[in-house]
């Protein structure tokens, strides 16, 4: 198990390297530089700026500078912020995004798995219909639509919850953004759980377990749950990256000071350094989340470990 985890860890290195390289060159090949703003700067200042940010060096040299800096945890300067470099800005936003993302992730998994299992075990009964409605709402209502509706209902009409902002970071500020982020994934996870649970409950080994007379509770909890979780766990990798993209919208709508908002602002201002830095940071995060997911998968499916 440990050696499997280690091998998986090693295999993430080329993935990250390819992704970083691709991002770097795509960005540098882009037409126009970071300082081609609306107001034109005098050539001398441009040259100084370029020299300061190593932009006058050959591309390949810039690349090595960049990768070298990356390895030291330096994501480079932000072209639009003088006070903070990219890494610092990310570190400022990270706690908010992390709290939000992890809470939403956990909530989505708990609700999704619970509702999915109930839907599978009580096919075409009450829990199954709740599930169907949840999936529909989650899939059909994009988060940028659910968010304002919830704001309108719970924030303005009922005035139970704050409309946005982080406030003192207490629970009531988290409820709406977390629900908006978790809902679509709770729907998708429950759909996957339901399908996979139904499939597993029809497997021969479940029949064997029933034939042993160990009772319905142990049959589901011990025999069915673990194999039924395999497709769910393999969805969690992509889910993590969907969740991150969701955080872009949610942070913007609810005015939360997370990384997502920095990213959107940077992208709208064409702050290449910040965009590249954030994308790379997101990728590292997601590759590591996938690593955790893979290890969890190996725990569920003993066959994977021997590969």
């Amino acid at each position: 198990m440990l050696s499997y985890a280690f091998r998986r860890l090693l295999s993430t290195i080329p993935v990250l390297w390819i992704a970083v390289t691709a991002c770097f060159f795509v960005l540098r090949l882009a037409p126009g530089g970071p300082f081609d703003g609306e107001r034109s700067l005098p050539p001398a200042i441009l040259q100084n700026l370029a020299a300061h940010y190593n932009l006058d060096k050959p591309l390949i040299q810039q690349y090595f500078y960049y990768v070298g800096d990356l390895l030291r945890g330096d994501l480079g300067p932000s072209f639009s912020s003088e006070d903070f470099n990219v890494a610092q800005q990310i570190m400022i936003g990270l706690p908010y995004t992390f709290t939000l993302g992890m809470t939403a992730f956990a909530l989505a998994i708990i609700i999704g798995v619970a509702v999915g299992c109930l839907g599978a075990l009580y096919q075409n009964k009450m829990p199954d219909y709740v599930l169907g409605a949840m999936i529909l709402v989650g899939v059909v209502f994009p988060n940028f639509l659910i968010a304002p509706i919830l704001q309108l209902v719970f924030g303005i009409q009922l005035a139970w919850l704050p409309v946005g902002g982080w406030g003192d970071g207490s629970l009531k500020f988290l409820v709406l953004p977390v629900v908006v982020m978790a809902l679509p994934h709770a729907g998708r996870i429950s759909r996957i759980t339901r399908g996979s649970m139904i499939e597993v409950m029809n497997q021969n080994f479940i029949r064997t377990a029933k034939a042993k007379g160990i009772g319905p509770r142990l049959t589901v909890m011990r025999h069915a749950l673990k194999p039924a979780m395999m497709p769910v766990v393999s969805y969690l990798g992509p889910a993590a990256s969907y969740l991150l993209t969701g955080s872009l919208v949610v942070e913007s709508i609810f005015g939360l000071p997370g990384i997502g908002r920095y990213f959107i602002n940077a992208a709208l201002n064409r702050d290449y350094g910040m965009v590249l830095g954030t994308v790379i940071f997101y990728m590292v995060l997601i590759v590591f989340l996938n690593l955790i997911v893979d290890i969890a998968y190996a725990w569920l499916d003993p066959k994977v470990r021997n590969r």
Binding site: V26, P238, S241, L244, A267, R270, Y272, V275, L276, V279
Partner: peptide
Amino acid sequence: YALPYILFVILLMVI
């Protein structure tokens, strides 16, 4: 699959 592809689309749109 694992990469947040919307970020790439945004990246492309920015560039």
